[in-house]
Design a protein around this nucleic acid. Structure first.
Lengths: 225, 225
DNA sequence: GTCTATAAATAGATAGAC
DNA sequence: GTCTATCTATTTATAGAC
């Protein structure tokens, strides 16, 4: 097998093993066996185990960043100020990504727990940008009077929390979907519904929407019905 | 040092090491050194490294379950049907727990990634119950007409997602709070606000609240203003 | 490009003295 | 209860033949 081809093959099996067992939990021997070569071959393509791991994280992180960067549908929805499309589209994209490539989330978690520098780099280069990106849209919609006045970062944290935690459950704790078995489309729609509209019915709660009116809040009764 | 005392000391340092480096990332030698004893002492109290790890997970999981089980304030708020108190109280409790004991979340994540059986046991004995507990309350409030008709499990997933993901950010990726620096109280309040009320202002979105009216939905225009 | 053989260090775990 | 010394297996990594 040609050099580059072999390198990619080793990389591929290593992704699967590192994501399943973590850095310290995976041995170079296992990687070599899974690739059907000797350990010496692994070290021919990657000087150290650490270098192999870094190559994987780098590849996964960059691929993920690139995949998000366009987010054409998101930008288009933003330009139309179509809130539902913005959030639902981003959620669906993330959920599909996590479902299609569960190794990605596991690698990210393992590397974060193990405090690998590339985990922090991914956070700086990807998560930070998402917060800026989404946060600035939320700010804009607040200026429009469409969203209530609340720290945009909290809104981003909340929404990403719903989405990421759902994927985490599906990939990590509840792969058989005992707790909640819904399609990504339904999940994205419901998370967006909750973020935008909440779950309280309009008439049921006298304190509802109290964040909206800044000047006439005194009309809202604090006592229960 | 007396037997039981020594045992607890080893357990304590092992918690800190296992939570920092995971099972495979922690050596019995390190544990012994951190406890100021020889490796032989570790194996005197715990037959194998695995047994020590299981003792830790078991202890942490049981302590956590016990701590939640009362949840007196939650039950009291539920009996009053004080939605805000129910969710805000549970969120604050979890956030405080995670902040006060960051090892707990790391151990849980590591053990889940490493597919340790006790991780699954914790899920079955704790997470499952929370879903039942909160889910049945949500169902009740839906029958009251206070909450919109949506799968209660999705609501639970959403809310737990906000809370857990926030703790995860604070403990794992952003301990310096670059992205979002708020107290647990503010976080719990805001997550609850979003869950109950959403972020859209009442007048801004013609599609808003469309889940509520089951019979007269045709009045809602689908076109944008 | 691929292998076998092996080095060097470290892992988990035990024996036996005090 | 505690230690030192040690065993055995495994781990990362290298040397050198083909």
């Amino acid at each position: 097998m040609a050099g580059e081809e072999r390198r990619l093959q080793i990389l591929a099996v290593a992704v699967s093993l590192f994501s399943a067992r973590g850095f310290r939990g995976t041995t170079t021997k296992e990687i070599a066996q899974a690739a059907g070569v000797s350990e010496a071959m692994v070290f021919r393509h990657f000087a150290t185990k650490e270098e192999l791991y870094a190559a994987i994280l780098d590849h996964k992180a960059c691929a993920s960043v690139d995949k998000f960067e366009p987010a054409e549908t998101a930008r288009e929805a933003i330009s139309r100020k179509d809130d539902r499309s913005v959030f639902e589209g981003l959620a669906l994209g993330a959920l599909e990504h996590h479902q299609h490539d569960p190794d990605f989330q596991r690698l990210l978690l393992y590397s974060a727990l193990e405090k690998h520098e590339l985990a922090q780099m991914f956070f700086d280069r990807f998560v930070l940008r998402v917060y800026e990106f989404l946060g600035s849209y939320i700010s804009e919609r607040q200026r429009d009077g469409a969203f209530v006045e609340v720290d945009p970062a909290i809104v981003v944290r909340s929404f990403i929390g719903m989405v990421m935690h759902h994927s985490l459950n599906n990939n990590l704790w509840d792969p058989t979907r005992r707790l909640l078995n819904i399609s990504n489309e339904v999940a994205a729609k419901n998370f967006t519904d909750i973020l935008l509209n909440g779950i309280t019915t309009p008439t049921s709660n006298p304190n509802s929407r109290r964040n909206v009116q800044s000047g006439n809040g005194s009309r809202n009764k604090q006592t229960k019905e």
